[in-house]
Amino acid sequence: MKTQIVTAVVDILQAGEYKHFEVRIPDNVKTIDGVETSVRFHSDYIATLNDSNTTNDNQTMIIGDVRLSGGKSNNWFYAETVSEYVALMPKNVFRLQALNCSLPFIFHKRRDGNLCNVTPIGTRIKGYFKDTIGTTLQQDIHYSITICIHLSTQ
């Protein structure tokens, strides 16, 4: 059995945008092991945010919601609220955060195996992403969400 990762990139341009997407997976997939999401901002507006827009503890904001369907067990086999650091991080602050042990990504042994263990029903994973940060800040913010799906293939 081998592992493989497929990715989909969703571009969000407007506040409250609701975008459907589809990812093709190989036909020899046995299980969907896990899903990861990641945000990349293209709009300069995000760099103007400061601590007053976020909590002082971790400077994170909710970006939006992602849901995926195409598994045997449930209609939606994966649902996540995506959060991300939004304020501009000078180098020293980033280092300080690392030293204060607040980096957001924590890895465990077989982390993706623990996230979901779903048998796909076809060769397409469908899903949607709904913007929240644009609605919260009342701004059209351009950003992209990368959805990475970890697969076990035969």
Binding site: I5, T7, V9, E36, S38, R40, A98, L99, C101, S102, L103, P104, F105, I106, F107, T146, C148
Partner: peptide
């Protein structure tokens, strides 16, 4: 397009 942040780790 697999983002590098997903392979980084913190001191925590």
């Amino acid at each position: 397009k697999y983002e590098s942040k997903l392979l980084m780790s913190g001191l925590n």
